[in-house]
Design a protein around this nucleic acid. Sequence first.
DNA 1: TTGAAAACTTAACACTGTTAATTAAATTTA
DNA 2: TAAATTTAATTAACAGTGTTAAGTTTTCAA
Lengths: 205, 205
Amino acid sequence: MGIVARKEKQKQEIRSLILEESMKLFVEEGFSKVSVRKIAERIQYSPTTLYLYFKDKNEILFYCCESGFKKMLEQNIALGLISDPIERLHQMGVNYLNFGLENPEYYDLMFIQEAPMSALIDMGAGWSSGDQALEALKMIVQDAMDKGLLVPAKVETVAMAVWSMVHGLVSLAIRQRLDKLVAAEEVENTMHESLDWLLKTMKKA
Amino acid sequence: MGIVARKEKQKQEIRSLILEESMKLFVEEGFSKVSVRKIAERIQYSPTTLYLYFKDKNEILFYCCESGFKKMLEQNIALGLISDPIERLHQMGVNYLNFGLENPEYYDLMFIQEAPMSALIDMGAGWSSGDQALEALKMIVQDAMDKGLLVPAKVETVAMAVWSMVHGLVSLAIRQRLDKLVAAEEVENTMHESLDWLLKTMKKA
DNA sequence: TTGAAAACTTAACACTGTTAATTAAATTTA
DNA sequence: TAAATTTAATTAACAGTGTTAAGTTTTCAA
C-alpha cells in the first residue's frame, strides 16, 4: 500500500512541476506564447507526456488559473480587518485593480481567455475558486445593504455591476483600449478615480 | 490615367472581398476558427495572395473591427432624438449591451482581442472609429454634467466608469463568467438591471 | 511583338495541439 | 531470481497555423 501512495505522490509532483513551469512561462512570455512543446522542454519531458497528466492544454490552463485565484484571495485576507462595508468594498476593488495591473497574464487567463472555461465545462466540475471570490463580493454588498449604507436593490444586480466595472477597467487597460480615452500615463490613475467615483456615487447620501 | 484608376478600384474590390469573407467566416465559425487559408479558399485565391493586400492577419482583423464600429455607430443614430442626456446615456448603454450580445464575434474582435490593437500599433495610425465612439460618450457625459444632472466630476473619469461597466458586463457574459454569479437564463436580464442601477444611482438626486 | 511591371501561385519553414503505436522502466507474479 | 505484466515515457505522424522567398503567369506600354 505504501508503494501505490508513493506513486500517487510522484504523479502529483509531476503535475505540480508542469503547472509551475507553465505559469513561469506565461508570466515571462505571455499567454499566447505558451505551447505544450515549450512547457515540455522546460521540464525535460516529451510533449506527449503532458497528456498523461492532463486531458489537454485547456486543462493545464485551468489549473494555472486556479492558482491565480489563490493568489488573489491571499491578497484579500487583510480585508477582514476593515469593518465599514463600503470601505471594505472599496479596498477590495483597489486590490482587484492592482492584481490585474500587476499580474496581467494571470488576469488574462482568469477572466479574459475562454480556454479555462472550456476546460471547466469539459470537466463537468464546479468552480470553487471563482465561486469563492464572487461569494465574498456578494457578502460585502449584502452587508452594506443590511447596514443601510446602500440604496436597497437586488444583491446580484449590484454585485454584477461592481464586478463588471472593475473587470471592465482592468481588461480594457490590459488590452490597451483605455489609452484611447486618456493618455497612457494617466490610465492607472484614472482607473482608480473611476473606482472611487463609483463607490462615492453608490453610497447612500 | 483611367487605367491606373481602374486598377486601383480593382485592388480595392479585392480588399473588400477579403474583408467581407473574413467577417462572414468569423460570424459563422467564431474568431478562433478564422485562418488565412480558410479566407483564401473562400475567395478562391491562394493564401499568400492575401499578403499582397494586407500586411498580415492582424491587419485584416483590424479592418474587420473597423466595420464593426460602423455597425455600432449606425445603431446609435437614433440616439440624437433623445433630448434628456441621462436618458440618452441609458439608451446608449442598452444599445451597447445589445450589440455585444447579438454580435459576440464582432465584440470579441473590437474590444477583447489584442490582434487589432497590435495592428494599429504596427500601422502607426490613429483609430478614428474607436475614437469617434468614445467621443460620443464623453459628449453625453459632458452634456449631462452641464445640465446639472450629474454630480460634478472629471468627464474622463465618469466616461471611463460607464464604458468599463458596460464592457465588463458584455465581456464577462461572452466569456461565460457571469453565469457564475446568476443562473445562465437570468444573465441577460440582470445585465440590464445592473445598467439601470448604475444610471439611477449616478443621477443627481 | 518584345520587355518590363504587376499579380498570383508553389514550395517551404517553423511552428501549433493532439493521437496511435512503440519502446523503456518498474513492479508483480511464478 | 526470471518471466510476465503493468505503468511510464517516447517517437512518428496528422492536420492545421502564419508567413517568406522564389518562381510563374498575366497584364500592359513602348
